[in-house]
């Protein structure tokens, strides 16, 4: 064992830190990079046959010789056969205006253009649309989580509530409750509520049930011996709750929060579909699919993915800091 002073001495352990960093790169970073690189390679390769018909039409208009020459014949041919027949005319595969499958750099360029190079207040800005969706997500997620925790506390302390409500909360996890999203939007719209609140409601009920189920498990996670110990201290119900049940439930809560925020975002996006909303990532997806703007669809999709990853990552970070401070995993 190295003593604390040795580790703390300046320069000590620098070699070891370097070794550990390399180990981390070799075991964690390199495999992930390899998989991501593989995905990008597959994507670029897939662009060629996916876009071949559009590419050849474009090349033909530019005056190139295309095999076979008539568009009708090309329409009936397989994509791979077309690629093999025209190996010299495929340069345009990655630069089409409306490709069937845009190349990764086209999506990145569109993302860059609509976030960094566009004012956030503009209707073309993805930051603007992202915020519309994110605000509904966060509001709904907050409501759903708060109500979920409250119900879980009720379930743990009231036997009748436990036996009546919990089976239904668990069953709700097996049914596609997202399906009622369009109805919520339209019904609330008909009584004059639109915009943020209906979407937040969908987000709320989607994050509500995972939180209930997980929090009940968390609040019940203390072992019988721990409950007995509290008993020997003659702790009141409130004290057992504050000092044992609540701290013990925190890891479960974070697991549910990560599931819940992802579900909330999906809820907000789907909530933007039925009324033909003009703002939000879901609206961008729908508009893109109406007008065949594939690059727009993909960039909205990536914006949603980045949002989801950022929020799940943020909760994961808070989770690690909190659990470390609370002394979990020591």
């Amino acid at each position: 064992m190295t003593s604390v002073t040795e580790i703390a001495a300046p320069g000590a352990g620098a070699g070891r830190t370097g070794l550990r960093a390399w180990r981390w790169v070799r075991l964690r970073v390199l495999p992930i990079l390899a998989v991501v690189l593989g995905i990008v390679v597959v994507w670029y390769t897939a662009c060629v046959p996916m876009n071949v018909k559009e590419t050849l039409t474009f090349a033909e208009r530019a005056g190139a010789e295309v095999e076979p020459a008539s568009p009708a014949e090309r329409r009936d041919m397989g994509r791979v056969a077309l690629v093999l027949a025209n190996p010299g005319q495929l340069g345009g595969s990655f630069a089409l205006d409306r490709p069937r499958l845009p190349a990764p750099h086209q999506v990145v360029a569109e993302l860059w253009e609509t976030t960094v190079e566009t004012r956030p207040t503009s209707k073309r800005s993805l930051v603007y649309h992202g915020w519309v969706t994110l605000s509904a997500t966060l509001l709904g997620f907050g409501i759903g989580t708060a109500l979920g925790v409250l119900l879980a506390v009720g379930i743990v302390h009231d036997r009748a509530m436990d036996m009546s409500v919990l089976p239904w909360a668990i069953a709700s996890q097996t049914i596609p409750i997202l399906a009622i999203a369009p109805m919520i939007i339209v019904v609330l719209n008909s009584i004059g509520l639109q915009g943020l609140i209906p979407k937040a409601l969908i987000s709320a009920y989607l994050s509500f049930f995972p939180v209930v189920v997980s929090m009940v498990a968390g609040l019940r996670s203390p072992a019988a011996s721990q409950m007995d110990l509290m008993h020997t201290y003659s702790a009141t119900g409130g004290q057992v709750f504050r000092k044992l049940r609540l701290p013990a439930s925190v890891p479960y809560l974070f697991a549910a929060l990560k599931v819940g925020i992802a579900a909330s975002l999906i809820g907000a996006i789907v909530g933007e579909l039925p009324t033909g909303a003009s703002e939000g990532l879901g609206a961008r997806l729908l508009a893109g699919s109406y007008y065949g703007q594939t690059v727009q669809i993909w960039s909205a999709l990536f914006a949603a993915a980045i949002l989801a990853a950022a929020m799940v990552g943020l909760i994961g970070l808070i989770e690690r800091l909190t659990l470390r401070r609370m002394g979990f995993g020591r």
């Binding site: 990560k258 594939t294 669809i297 799940v312």
Partner: peptide
Amino acid sequence: AALPIIGTAPILVMW
């Protein structure tokens, strides 16, 4: 698995 993959629906419907 945490991403909103459901958003690929318009693309796949197109394909």
